[in-house]
Design a protein around this nucleic acid. Structure first.
Length: 260
DNA sequence: TCCCATGTTGCTAA
DNA sequence: GTTAGCAACATGGG
């Protein structure tokens, strides 16, 4: 169930194992993903992350796009030998040596092959952009700051875990209206956001349930979480209890004492 | 049985 | 046209 750091981790690992390899065959195990694309024996020319999409650029100008949605993950199985195919495998891309599997219990993931085009995207949450820009957009919005941060049309990459963590680091209550934040508060968010996300990338993501990296290993950022999935634990900043509330339909964790 | 789940989209109503 | 709020997608785990 990946957000930006998890997707970025996969891309960096794919870069190491898949680039330059020639695709042998594509097996679609779940008809929901469509029919096998006409990919010939194209070579993987490069890997890109676009928002939470993984793009495997082919050497003919097209690209494989994978979006993992809620429960998708990718698994690399190395070498030419036979591997077991894990439960919930939905797609297998084989190479001369090694194969790439899409595993997705809930079957929400997206797979498509399309022309690789450069399109305008909202700023990536790892990029630098001015607090001024955010507060101008927020000024027109009635929604909570948490929903605002998670709106992929505004900023790319932040999901439920990191929204909770960023708002805790910025000492802002997730239920506050986006339009009511001060310039100083936006600056705190823009300082915490990239710091948390880039550290999570270095940790290869957050494994609180079933997230695994490309090689099947759990991430490490769960050891750095301050609030997410920590109801009842103590806030590391003020010692008060972390609570869980439902906000905009999503489980939301916060320290009500120091997030104002 | 019910509620929960790291995401997005499409509908409805204001 | 824009925005906010939800149900839907499909499955498994507690």
């Amino acid at each position: 169930m990946p957000e930006l750091p998890e997707v970025e981790s996969l891309c960096r690992q794919l870069e190491l194992v898949a680039v330059g390899k020639r695709i042998k065959e594509i097996f679609i195990l779940d008809p929901k993903l469509g029919s096998p694309p006409d990919i010939g024996r194209r070579r993987i020319a490069g890997i890109q992350r676009r928002a939470k999409n993984i793009l495997l650029a082919l050497d003919d100008g097209r690209a494989i796009r994978i979006h993992l949605r809620m429960t998708g993950r990718l698994l690399w199985q190395a070498g030419a030998r036979e591997h077991a195919t894990p439960r919930h495998s939905r797609l297998i891309i084989t190479f001369g040596k090694g194969r790439l599997l899409l595993i997705d219990p809930r079957r929400f993931a997206i797979f498509e092959v399309a022309q690789l085009k450069t399109e305008e995207l909202p700023p990536d949450a790892l990029d630098k952009f001015p607090a001024q820009w955010l507060s101008e957009i927020a000024a027109r919005r009635e929604i909570s700051v948490k929903s605002f941060l998670m709106d992929q049309r505004i900023i790319s990459g932040i999901g439920n875990i990191y929204a909770c963590e960023i708002l805790h680091a910025a000492k802002i209550n997730p239920a506050r209206k986006a339009k009511e934040l001060s310039a100083a508060e936006w600056r705190r968010i823009l300082k915490a956001g990239p710091a948390i996300l880039s550290q999570a990338v270095m940790c290869r993501g957050t494994t609180v349930s079933d997230w695994r990296d490309l090689f099947g290993n759990p991430g490490e950022y769960q050891h750095h979480l301050k609030v997410y999935a920590k109801s009842g634990a103590r806030c590391p900043r003020c010692g008060q209890s972390i609570s869980r509330v439902k906000l905009d339909g999503r489980g939301t964790y916060l320290c009500a004492h120091c997030q104002k």
